[in-house]
């Protein structure tokens, strides 16, 4: 008992602002100063605490900055290849439906290299929760263009700004998922600029999975001052100005055409 209590006391994080499901031993975390991942993962940690599902969560993270969260929490996790987090979590969930499967990735993993997995998990109505952090570029590899890079935004592979005539327009992930996901799916876009709303969306996404209703998807508008090369003020300005202007925050209605259980 003593040993167990010691472990419990070791697990309690003194700072009341930190979720209990956060792993104290791996804090401070490895993300850059000003990075939005910390806020997104705080919302996730708070929700796991509130739902009391520490022992039910299987958390998958991708390649790219999201992989830095591989030992971020006190629940079980697996870090996969770029874009492959959704299939790993789908496979686990199919094999053991009682698990609460969370696939966490960036916009490259969600909308480019792993787009086929997002599209098909959504249409199949896989009972998992996918969370995609959208920071408008590939951060870990050096700030290249992502599917979500805004028109005229400069990145290391669009040094003169993204030209939509050459590389198209930013991918609207939640809008895409809402158009194709099976009935019962949950789709929302939150932002690290509105913590309470983001937390609510993540909570609803996890509950939707736990109630067995369908695929659950949350895009999180996030910040990357390192690759944006911005100070604190400009970082927040880009997020709440340009990004939130282009990517509308809120819940999305799943298309009514995608009914389950209907004969073809």
């Amino acid at each position: 008992m003593v040993e167990k209590n010691q472990r419990v006391s070791r697990g309690i994080i003194e700072n009341q602002n930190m979720p209990r499901s956060w792993r104290k031993e791996t804090k401070p975390h490895r993300f850059c100063p000003g990075c939005g991942h910390g806020i997104a993962l705080k919302a996730l940690g708070d929700v796991v605490d509130e739902l009391g599902i520490l022992d039910q969560v299987l958390y998958g993270c991708d390649i790219g900055c999201s992989l830095l969260s591989w030992d971020f929490f006190n629940f079980d996790s697996i870090q996969t290849h770029h874009g492959r987090t959704i299939p790993v979590i789908v496979g686990a969930k199919r094999a053991r439906p009682e698990i609460v499967g969370i696939a966490y990735m960036g916009d490259g993993g969600g909308y480019a290299i792993g787009a086929q997995h997002l599209v098909n998990a959504a249409t199949r109505g896989d009972r998992i929760t996918a969370i995609v952090a959208n920071n408008t570029l590939y951060a870990m590899t050096g700030g290249q263009m992502a599917p979500t890079t805004l028109p005229r935004q400069k990145t290391s592979t669009t040094p003169y700004g993204r030209d939509p005539l050459i590389t198209g327009s930013p991918t609207l992930g939640p809008e895409l998922v809402a158009a194709i996901a099976s009935e019962g799916s949950y789709v929302a876009r939150g932002t690290v600029g509105d913590y309470n709303k983001l937390k609510l969306f993540i909570k609803k996404a996890l509950l939707n999975q736990m109630e067995g209703k369908g695929f659950s998807f949350v895009e999180v508008l996030s910040t990357c001052p390192t690759n944006w090369r911005t100070g604190a003020k400009e970082t927040w300005g880009f997020l709440q100005g340009k990004m939130e202007n282009y990517f509308k925050v809120g819940e999305l209605q799943v298309s009514q055409g995608n009914r389950l259980g209907e004969e073809g």
């Binding site: 299987l58 697996i78 299939p87 686990a92 086929q116 098909n120």
Partner: peptide, 16 residues
């Protein structure tokens, strides 16, 4: 949806 997914879903199942 493809063999990439088949391989990774397999690993998810084996993991649990």
């Amino acid at each position: 949806e493809d063999e990439i997914s088949a391989g990774f879903t397999m690993l998810g199942g084996a993991l649990v």
